[in-house]
Write a protein that binds this DNA or RNA. Structure first.
Lengths: 119, 119
DNA sequence: CCTTGACCTGGAGCGCGCTCCAGGGATTTC
DNA sequence: GAAATCCCTGGAGCGCGCTCCAGGTCAAGG
């Protein structure tokens, strides 16, 4: 099983080392394995989880919700609660995409107006 | 010419009174007219401007850029600079919509995976 | 070994965009 | 003209999500 140093995990996951530690403190990332000397060693499973975390953060999920999702993930009997949480998040993502697009339309009208003014 | 009290301007614009004052301090909103007693009176022109500000904020334009745009708007000879700024912003908005959508696809794959697990 | 660089912890600090507060003056309502 | 609202200013405070720091420990290369 491949393992990764903190620097490698940061490289692969796209989070900074500080952020990885922060997520672990917050319970978003389960306690990472350590060497005898106390240095963290990330596994492929950790990185897979972080990939999902990245997706959720990029779509605007707050840290608190991520924490909730992580807690649910510790319990094997919570599949439906987890999927409900993701589906709810998906709805919010859709709303923000829609909002962004409609505001973008307004923005483009304004730009068109400028062009009509000879800009 | 219709004018608006701070409370009315907040109601119509969708910004709080505090935010309106903050924008004025920051130079995002030009100095608003006052009554003899010093109370602000917003005009239709102010509200029109605030509508654009809302659009730009909703699409993620930072306060600093908004300030820059507001400064340009004080000078009648800067139409092309203003439109360039808006077009650049439009590109960033498009990028964030695209990013959001591609992350949403990943999210939906994850949700589908849960359903395949019987959730 | 010894050096060099990566990593550790706990906690403070930061950047953004507001939001709230105290203490006081203006305005509207009756 | 008094009471009840609304608004003023300057400045402090806050919530989020990191980010940085000091002071020390661990690990890999020569």
């Amino acid at each position: 099983m491949t393992t990764y140093s903190p620097a490698q995990a940061a490289e692969v996951s796209g989070f900074s080392i500080d952020t990885l530690r922060y997520y672990e403190r917050e319970g978003i990332l389960r306690p990472v394995a350590r060497t005898s000397g106390g240095h963290r060693t990330y596994t492929d499973a950790d990185l897979g989880w972080l990939d999902l975390v990245h997706c959720l953060r990029d779509t605007g999920m707050p840290i608190a919700d991520l924490k909730r999702y992580a807690e649910l993930s510790l319990d094997r009997t919570t599949l439906s609660a987890r999927v409900a949480l993701l589906e709810e998040h998906d709805r919010r993502v859709q709303e923000s995409i829609d909002a962004l697009r409609s505001q973008q339309d307004k923005l483009r009208e304004k730009i068109a107006w400028y062009h009509s003014q000879g800009a």
